[in-house]
Design a binder for these strands. Sequence first.
DNA 1: AATTCGCTCAACCGCATTAGG
DNA 2: TCCTAATGCGGTTGAGCGAAT
Length: 234
Amino acid sequence: MGRSPCCEKAHTNKGAWTKEEDERLIAHIRAHGEGCWRSLPKAAGLLRCGKSCRLRWINYLRPDLKRGNFTEDEDELIIKLHSLLGNKWSLIAGRLPGRTDNEIKNHWNTHIKRKLLSRGVDPTTHRPINEHASSNITISFERREEKGAGFGHEERSSSEESSTWRQQQLKCPDLNLELCIGPPVQQESLEPVKREGTLCFSCSLGLQKSNECKCNGFLCLSTAVLDYRSLKMN
DNA sequence: AATTCGCTCAACCGCATTAGG
DNA sequence: TCCTAATGCGGTTGAGCGAAT
């Protein structure tokens, strides 16, 4: 019979939030903290569904939101993160303090996409536009020595599928798109400075590999290789 | 002044994932 | 281990606004 609706649609408000609703939500969260969104509307005296309350709080009412225009640095960071993570807006937002996934997604769709196109870069693949017009490119995230057992291929059990994979390899024999991300080449990487309270990229994604991680700075990919299989596992 | 057009962004929807019994 | 409810996420929509005609 399918899943029951997240709320009683007949008795909930929709559309723009009023000032009074905002105030009720803020007051309730200040008093009781975040969480238990399902029961929050009733407890706060709001005729909204829990999802709507959560979204309103996260995207608009949270006190730590930055708001305002994105800086050039933020734009470039979003572009870099998007080239690594794709449309994983919540992960990208995790690297931009004070910005929400919704805000970044909107900014990407309205500004950054256009910016990249004007540079002649495909916003989806992050490759020059005239390059991919001639061929379809399959990006492999696996390490060479793990072919056949790595991320994206563990389900390839049948011989038919593996031969398809071999054919793809034959089509592009010189194409090696192993994703290997190194730490940024900066002065800082030559003279590591310990920044307290900052997490490396892996840690912030929950990929920390305990003894290897030093968390020395921004986007320091501790193992120098972002293992996408771990991303999938986590 | 009225209308149209394009842009922005808050909010919604549906699916995926996670947590708990 | 399975099932259900709750939460999270990404794609999409549409109201509101300013600029252009």
